[in-house]
Amino acid sequence: MSADPPAESLRDLAQQEAVLKLLAERVAAAQKDVKARTQRALDAAEKRDGTERVGASLPGGEQVATISLRKGETGPVVTDEEALARWVRQQWPDEEWTETRIVRTVKPWKLAELLGEMEAAGAAKLVDRVTGEVLDAPGVVIKPTRARTHAITWRKGGREAVAEAWRTGALSGQLAAITAGGEAA
């Protein structure tokens, strides 16, 4: 005859869930804040002296991770599809690169091709392959398409070392700020 494991207390489970929810909210807010401050500091360090990465170490000096800058990307972005489609139709009237619905649009495969050419050129311009004329593409601008950010790369054993430092209280100063304070939104 096997004994059933003791039933968990509903009150204990409710308490655990409430505590973890508050902790998760506070951790998420703290992470968002520190990520923004880290990004500003990395951007400033790169501008100042070319620094693109920094080590993350525990209070005892053990490096557990590396924070690395990821550069953003810039490329062509369609801001007025209708204007671009009219222009493509005007420039290449014999080609079936556009289709008429309620408004004229550029077929997705051709739009991808045209935007790829503009991205390669770094400008909202195309070269007419027949005449060689450089054409400005209306309804397209070159602007950031992905923001600069940064990433964490853990060293082997880094996660475990952080967990152990947390468990033993070595990170109590860093963690106290997360649990201190007023109501989380």
Rank of each mutant, 00 (worst) to 15 (best):
S2G: 09
S2F: 11
P5D: 08
A7L: 06
A7Q: 12
E8Q: 09
Q16S: 02
L20M: 13
K21H: 14
L23R: 15
E25H: 08
A28G: 07
A28E: 04
A28Q: 00
A29V: 10
K32N: 14
V34Q: 15
K35S: 13
R37P: 08
R37H: 05
R37E: 15
T38C: 03
A41R: 14
A41M: 03
L42Y: 01
E46I: 09
K47Y: 15
T51V: 14
E52Q: 14
G55R: 15
A56C: 13
Q63G: 04
Q63D: 05
S68F: 09
G72F: 01
E73R: 01
T74G: 04
T74S: 13
T74C: 03
P76A: 11
V77E: 09
V78R: 07
D80C: 05
R89I: 02
Q91P: 10
T105S: 08
V106Q: 00
K110L: 07
K110D: 02
A112H: 13
G116E: 12
A121M: 10
V127E: 12
R129K: 09
R129P: 10
E133C: 05
E133H: 05
L135I: 14
D136Y: 09
G139M: 04
V141E: 08
T145N: 09
T145R: 07
R146G: 09
R146I: 01
R148T: 11
T149Y: 00
T149R: 05
W154G: 13
A163C: 07
A165R: 00
A165S: 01
W166V: 07
R167Q: 13
R167S: 06
A170C: 03
A170G: 04
G173R: 13
A177K: 06
G181W: 00
G182F: 04
